[in-house]
């Protein structure tokens, strides 16, 4: 029996290895092509190692402008989604079952809606007010669903909130504003950081919603998307490498900081 069990585990291990290969294969292809001197993205036509594409990327005006736009849009989305998500979560914690169920469904509906439809509906709606697609509409469209993620993050934290703290503070003469500032905000601070990071990344990475609402403007990601139609150079691969390096670096930093914080008590 144990032999059969060991065989089963070996099969599972092999399958996991195969799956990881499946996940890492595109990553590897992407990275290798970024360093290939061949003018089209390729790993089979090896023309020698080069850093040329990173240089080209650094000089690519539209990509750099796209990066700026992406960061601007992501910051704007964070600035909108955080207060909206917080307000929504606070509202839900205070509502009775019926209204609560309905509002909750409405609030999470953008998450269940295909991204392209959020972009389309935003575009169509604002056209009635003479507003064409652009960065602003992209921000609004993204906020419609990213605020829902923020709401869920805050809601999860608020469920662990001891509501008698608010009563205690009110009883000691605090105004609702002071309760909010001194009790609720400090309690929510960690989830605010989480929500901000999630909102920023969601916005920065978004394609489906953005591409329908961005009009003549562009973000880094929509620019990459449009390059697929109008000719590609391995500079796009270089972006991929930068993404991976940045993310892994941040992950390592996060783990490292976490460990240090734990070590310090």
């Amino acid at each position: 029996m144990t032999r059969r069990r060991e065989a089963g585990e070996a099969v599972l291990d092999a399958y996991v290895a195969l799956f990881l290969l499946y996940m890492f294969l595109p990553l590897g292809v992407m990275v290798i092509a970024a360093f290939n001197a061949y003018p089209d993205p390729s790993v089979t036509q090896w023309h020698g190692f080069t850093l040329h594409w990173f240089e080209a990327l650094a000089r690519d005006g539209r990509m750099l402008a796209g990066l700026r736009n992406s960061i601007f849009a992501a910051l704007a989305v964070v600035a909108l989604s955080l207060p909206i998500g917080l307000a929504a979560a606070l509202l839900l914690t205070r509502l009775q079952s019926r209204a609560r169920g309905f509002l909750y469904a409405l609030m999470v509906s953008p998450i269940l809606t295909p991204g392209i439809i959020l972009g389309i509906s935003t575009l169509v709606f604002w056209r009635n007010f003479g507003m064409a697609g652009g960065l602003l509409l992209a921000v609004l469209a993204q906020t419609s669903f990213i605020a829902a993620y923020c709401m869920l993050i805050f809601l999860a934290r608020l469920q662990r909130f001891d509501a008698t703290q608010v009563e205690a503070a009110l009883d000691l003469g605090a105004s609702q504003g002071l309760v909010f500032r001194r009790i609720l905000v400090p309690f929510l601070a960690p989830s605010m950081a989480t929500a901000a990071v999630v909102a920023f990344l969601q916005s920065f990475e978004n394609y489906n919603t953005t591409v329908f609402s961005i009009g003549g403007d562009w973000t880094l990601v929509t620019e990459i998307g449009s390059r697929f139609r109008f000719g590609l150079t391995p500079a796009v691969n270089a972006i991929g490498v930068v993404f991976v390096v940045l993310t892994v670096a941040m992950a390592i930093l996060h783990v490292h900081l976490g460990r240090r914080r734990r070590a310090h008590g």
Partner: peptide
Amino acid sequence: LIFQNLALF
């Protein structure tokens, strides 16, 4: 009021 669970901050 002193709460049953004290409700300290």
